[in-house]
């Protein structure tokens, strides 16, 4: 479903930052993969390279067999099939919840207004806030906003969902409601790539865990492997700090 091969990404600011160094990974259909690692280890960059919000410098990234780094690929078509949920929600501030959910459906998917609205309502029920359809994002709690953001991505019927620390900006009491939505999604068989520090979620839902450090994939394995006896010292150190 998603395959990255020897991906490199370097940022040039005041100095050179090697955000991704020879990263390879694979996510199969229906799999939930959790990416963990210390801050600045390149988790976000990897996720953003998967849907071309960042362009990888080198390597190959295949989505559903399509090489997205090939410049003949229409990246917009690829992105239609990939939902992304951001740490800071990024709801469209000038649109209501309903507007957030229907816009891309009508503009990109060319659905009728009615069809889009019906789909939006169904998804809002699913994430538990149908009564907020007419509200503006500013009047929602963080947890509600993030659930709307998930619904917005789902409205496009994506084949893969990417989550970049979806609960990191939330007050502790709201983390649960967002994780519940994500767990439900995982149970339905959605292919998911989740960057998170919620180890409980990783343990409960992940099929595989990827540990990244300093732009490299250090260790890949099942949650059992990670939480019982990780191989590398870096992994052990990180887990001891976070658990």
């Amino acid at each position: 479903m998603v395959r990255a091969e020897n991906v490199y990404k370097t940022f040039y600011t005041t100095h050179k930052i090697e955000a991704l160094v020879d990263v390879s990974c694979q996510i199969d259909k229906g799999e939930v993969v959790v990416i963990i690692g210390p801050s600045g280890s390149g988790k976000s960059t990897l996720l953003r390279c998967l849907n071309m919000l960042e362009k990888a410098d080198k390597g190959h990234i295949y989505i559903d067999g399509v090489d997205i780094l090939d410049h003949k690929t229409n990246i917009n078509k690829v992105r239609e099939e990939m939902g992304m949920v951001f740490q800071s929600f990024n709801l469209f501030a000038h649109k209501t919840v309903m507007g957030n959910l229907t816009l891309a459906q009508t503009v990109v998917r060319k659905r009728s207004k009615r069809e889009a609205a019906e789909k939006a309502m169904a998804l809002l029920k699913k994430v538990g806030i149908p009564e907020k359809a007419g509200s503006y994002p500013d009047n929602l709690s963080g947890g509600q906003q993030q659930r709307v953001a998930i619904a917005r991505a789902l409205a496009m019927d994506p084949k893969v969902m990417l989550f970049d620390e979806p609960t990191s900006a939330l007050d502790p009491e709201m983390i649960g409601e967002v994780l519940d939505v994500m767990k439900a999604l995982a149970r339905e068989g959605m292919t998911m790539v989740v960057v998170t520090h919620e180890m409980g979620f990783a343990r409960e839902v992940a099929d595989r865990v990827i540990f990244m450090d300093e732009g490299k994939v250090v260790e890949v394995g099942t949650p059992e492997h990670f939480f019982r006896d990780p191989t590398h010292d870096r992994t052990k150190l990180f887990l001891s700090q976070i658990l």
Binding site: L53, R79, E80, F92, L103, A104, V107, V108, A149, M156
Partner: peptide
Amino acid sequence: EAARSLGMT
């Protein structure tokens, strides 16, 4: 980024 990630040009 949110708009682009939804497939909008």
